[in-house]
Write a protein that binds this DNA or RNA. Structure first.
Length: 578
RNA sequence: GCCCCUGUAGCUCAGUUGGACAGAGCACCGGUUUUCUAAACCGGCGGUCCCUGGUUCGAGUCCAGGCGGGGGCGCCA
């Protein structure tokens, strides 16, 4: 994946202006300069820095000599107040007023959509995520695919991509043979009417697997039941459909709570009937062959185990169905990118099916991308069952409500009784969602109640809190925000730091899309919230003189918009009071 | 055995194409509120960046080989 930065906005961004200003005296293109522009480790060095290493080759001079020469030749101009060489670096300080105006006007232009771009315009992205298995409860670890996928879909959409969100249910396979046999042995019709139907179904499934150890013949019974289901046996199909409906109902309550929606909710069952068609296609390409009674694609030339297409009893497999689905989607959407937000353990599966499609001549498979993520560790209870996501969200909201009531009692916030549960839900759920997005997705997540429900430091509530504080300022301000307020009063170090963080958000959004990595945005929001908190501490807004007040109100409001935009991209709500 | 991921402070992590003395949060110690929400801010403590070689002017970052942790490997998904 390449990082592509696009600047199609009406007004050039602040870093663009800097790059253009530096371009003349250095003879380097603005694109090249902007790409290399970085933030020095120490603020006293300047606001931005240009490392001169990359230019050593073309100019055939030492980086330090280049920096010195450029520093000598540069006269302050426009947004750049001065430059200074420091070894191989060209450090530059901005003309603070112009810099502030450049950053703020861009935010004022985009409003709550700040951070987005047009870089994906005209392209279509499919994001497959969540994809729970039916007849299984929605446990805490299922949140990973769900929120990572949702954030990635949001991020693509914000960058102009046409985005298709797909929930690909695990609703087909031998496991449903298992469930059918278990239900017929130990279940009854009233079961499916119960509110906890899904949990009971899962218990049946677990019981079956336990008894299987004593009675291995059950295994074949389950396979036969699935085979019958796939061949269309009516009673099996009716039952299966009832399992499916009960599961979907339960999933929907979770999705509603997380603010997740899909353009398509289909399942593996949707395409199962067409496995013969797929197999014929692969046979025509000379890719499929019989092996030990099953039909496979041999991948030994690529150091992979074979891809199984059909079992000896003729029923389909996971790979068969994913191959059919991929072709369907390409035909239907002609996507430019398809992301499979599926856990790391399935890495081999995707390598296999991508290879099969490649061998079959589907060039578009190079646009398919497995987006893996690490697993939850330690979320089983002592009884060996999984912790439900709903329990975690409930607990988070409950603890948040306690904190809000504390703040209320201390007179820190005024919130009508009726709005307390709503705010608590937004913050509690936000904490859980943010916790899942704040580190690189490939990292395993250690499930720890204390960690998850600690809302101090680098957490979702920290970001939401900054947003709520700004809302508080705006409520109490004597005058409404003026987007035409003179920004030249914004010269305080804390203000410049905040502006730099604001200017960085679009770049991080772009990177997040390029690398399918939402954590870049989470990190940018944490840094932005931090910069705001420092500003809040050091720079009074309402107490300030009229000109400064107007400028700071504009800055605060821009920060609010950026925080709201960023949180929304991550699928998190931003309450005005908390 | 083979393949994939991972290894940075007591814990959890960040570290953009290799580049300025390796950063943050939590925990621990101390400070800040007659002022816009103390879910905050400031300071202190704390590191052979798993090990060994190599490439480079320069390696936490790239390459090779080890070691530790997680996951995967034909009729489950």
């Amino acid at each position: 994946m390449s990082h592509e930065f696009s600047y199609t906005g009406a007004m050039p961004s602040a870093t663009r202006l800097i790059a253009e200003t530096l371009s003349g005296p250095t003879g380097i293109s603005p694109d090249e300069i902007e790409k290399n522009l970085e933030i020095p480790p120490d603020e006293t060095l300047g606001e931005y820095a240009l490392p001169c290493f990359p230019f050593a080759k073309t100019t055939k001079k030492a980086p330090a000599a280049i920096a010195q020469e450029w520093a000598r030749n540069f006269a302050p101009s426009g947004i750049v107040a001065g430059v200074k060489s420091a070894g191989p670096y060209l450090n530059l300080s901005v003309e603070r007023g112009r810099f502030a105006e450049a950053v703020l006007s861009e935010i004022n232009r985009q409003g709550e959509r700040y951070g987005g771009s047009e870089s994906g315009r005209g392209r279509t992205a499919i994001v497959e995520y969540a994809s729970p298995n039916i007849a299984k409860t929605f446990a805490v670890h299922h949140i990973r695919s769900t929120v990572i996928g949702n954030a990635l879909a949001n991020l693509h959409a914000a960058c102009g991509w046409k985005t298709i969100r797909i929930n690909h249910l695990g609703d087909w396979g031998t496991q449903f043979g298992t469930l059918l046999v278990a239900y017929r042995k130990w279940g009854d019709e009233t079961l499916l009417e119960r509110p906890d139907a899904v949990r009971v179904l899962m218990d049946l499934y677990t019981r079956f697997n336990k008894e299987k150890k004593e009675n291995p013949a059950l295994e074949n019974e389950a396979r036969a039941a699935f085979s019958a289901l796939e061949k269309g046996e009516p009673s099996a199909h009716t039952l299966w459909n009832a399992f499916r409906q009960a599961s979907l109902k339960e999933f929907q309550t979770i999705f509603d709570r997380l603010g997740i929606r899909f353009d398509e909710t289909k399942g593996e069952s949707d395409c199962a009937s067409r496995s013969n068609e797929l197999i014929r296609w692969l046979q025509e390409k000379g890719l499929a062959r019989e092996s030990e009674g099953a039909l496979i694609v041999d991948l030994s030339d690529f150091k992979m185990p074979p891809c199984l297409l059909r079992k000896a009893d003729e029923s389909s497999l996971y790979a068969t169905r994913d191959l059919i689905t991929a072709r369907d989607r390409h035909e239907k959407y002609c996507f430019d990118r398809m992301l499979y937000v599926v856990g790391m353990p399935q890495e081999l599966h995707f390598r296999q099916i991508f290879k099969v499609l490649e061998l079959a001549g589907c060039g578009w498979v190079s646009n398919c991308l497995h987006v893996p993520f690490g697993h939850y560790q330690g979320m089983r209870t002592r009884e060996g069952t999984f912790i439900l996501l709903a329990e975690v969200l409930d607990e988070a909201a409950k603890r948040t409500e306690v904190k809000i009531r504390d703040a209320l009692r201390e007179g820190l916030v005024s919130l009508p009784e009726g709005e307390i549960p709503t705010a608590a839900e937004k913050v509690g759920v936000g904490a859980v969602v943010f916790n899942d997005l704040k580190t690189r997705r490939i990292k395993d997540v250690i499930f720890d109640w204390d960690d998850l429900l600690n809302f101090q430091g680098r957490t979702g509530p920290y970001v939401q809190y900054a947003h709520a504080r700004i809302s508080g300022i705006l409520r109490k301000a004597p005058a409404p925000v003026r987007t035409d307020a003179d920004a030249s009063a914004l010269v305080h170090n804390a203000e410049v730091r905040l502006l730099k963080n604001l200017a960085d958000l679009p770049r991080q959004v772009e990177r997040a899309v390029a690398d399918a990595e939402p954590s870049y945005v989470a990190t940018a929001l944490l840094d932005l919230a931090k910069a705001f908190s420092q500003f809040y501490q050091e720079c009074p807004v309402i107490q300030a003189d009229a000109a400064v007040q107007a400028a700071r109100l504009r800055l605060a409001d821009a920060t609010r918009l950026a925080l709201k935009s960023g949180l929304t991209l991550l699928g998190i709500q931003a309450p005005d009071k908390m």
